[in-house]
Write a protein that binds this DNA or RNA. Structure first.
Length: 347
DNA sequence: GGGACATGAAGAA
DNA sequence: TCTTCCTGTCCCG
């Protein structure tokens, strides 16, 4: 499922597609009956906080400011939720956002031939919410939450979330203090949305690898600098994700371990001929879903185990940092950000 | 057609 | 810690 970066990307797509426009709303599946109450309202804004999406609706464009009624639709995609878009050329830069595997994709390509009017696209029966504007439409399926809230309700949700690294108003210190005060494992804390909002299973595994941290280290055993380092590493990683829609955490020199092993044995160098702008998914992660494969840095077999009800992946050799007394060796240096944050290479 | 699995989280026990 | 919910895909028989 989408981690926080996806939801921010989605909010931007919805703002661009429907922002400040009058929209039709419906629930083809029938399980979001409140859609009818908002039909014909103006979608004033779309905002992401962690993995939560808030769509602000006001009654009508012609309503003067004053104290307009605002209703918020809160959407949480959960593990399976996704949005699909269709519309005029250039309406949405994305066809589908959400669940890991493709959705309307196939069908939509057929409909995108140009012969089929997007207005005639029949929603899937599972479509919880359809939003249709002058330029296009967006269909939501499979969310774990889709509900209407007032301003207080929206605020209550936000208040129980930890800081979101993708938000300019995020309070890094809240995250750092919370981690340093906890005896819970860092691998569990990172999945707790009250501690830090927007992190999911991929970013958890990957950022811990990059920090060389053992996922089981209690938060309070870490130094303030280490925890700040986790945050500072997450910000650009997630910004990249929000911008491109893809999670890439590997540094270029670690992307092709198989080739590097061959290269080393032959004592030759090879020129990379891949498009540097597109990192293939199978080269995008250090540890996520790479259990039993060799570590990209040290070739040790990547392991996996259950942690916080999800599978965590880690390198038992690289991720040995367990406390403030951690030592670095030449072969296993500190994470890039720990050495020189400002020069750490980003994807 | 059935079961496992997937970037998630709430609520019960 | 366990169960449940949301959807779609893939692999198997």
């Amino acid at each position: 499922m989408p981690e926080g970066h996806t939801v921010h990307r989605l909010a931007a797509a919805l703002r661009a597609g429907f922002g400040e426009q009058r929209v039709r709303t419906s629930s083809p599946q029938g399980r979001f009956s409140e859609a009818a109450d908002l039909d014909g309202w103006v979608l004033a804004d779309a905002e992401a906080v962690g993995k939560h999406l808030f769509l602000a609706f006001v009654p009508d464009a012609s309503v003067d400011a004053g104290a307009p009624v605002t209703r918020y639709v809160r959407v949480h995609l959960g593990l399976y939720g996704s949005w699909t878009f269709a519309g005029e050329p250039g309406f949405a830069t994305v066809h589908a956002i959400g669940a890991p595997r493709v959705r309307i994709g196939e069908r939509e390509e057929g409909l995108d031939d140009g012969d089929v009017d997007w207005r005639r696209i029949v929603p899937r029966p599972t479509t919880r919410l359809r939003i249709a504007g002058p330029q296009g439409l967006a269909d939501l399926t499979g969310p774990t939450a889709c509900e209407v809230l007032d301003a207080a309700g929206r605020q209550a949700v936000i208040d129980r979330l930890g800081p979101d690294p993708l938000r300019a108003d995020a309070d890094r210190r809240r995250f750092v203090d919370r981690v340093l005060a906890s005896r819970t494992a860092i691998g569990v804390l990172l999945m707790n949305q009250d501690v830090i909002a927007g992190i999911g299973n991929i970013y958890r595994a990957e950022v811990l690898f990059r920090a060389r941290l053992d996922p089981t280290v209690p938060g309070r055993d870490l130094t303030r600098g280490m925890v700040e380092g986790i945050w500072e590493d997450l910000v650009p990683l997630m910004e990249y994700g929000a911008r491109t829609g893809r999670i890439v955490t590997t540094q270029p020199e670690h992307r092709d371990i198989e080739a590097r092993i061959v290269e080393r044995s032959r004592g030759t160098r090879q020129n990379g001929d891949e498009d540097p702008d597109v990192v293939p998914r199978e080269k995008s992660f250090y540890v996520y879903h790479r259990q039993t494969l060799p570590c990209r840095v040290c070739a040790t077999e990547i392991r996996s185990a259950d942690m916080a009800a999800r599978t965590v992946f880690w390198c038992p050799r690289c991720q040995t940092v367990r406390s403030r007394r951690a030592t670095w060796t030449r072969e296993h240096p500190a994470a890039p950000w720990a050495l020189a944050p400002e020069r750490s290479e980003r994807p």
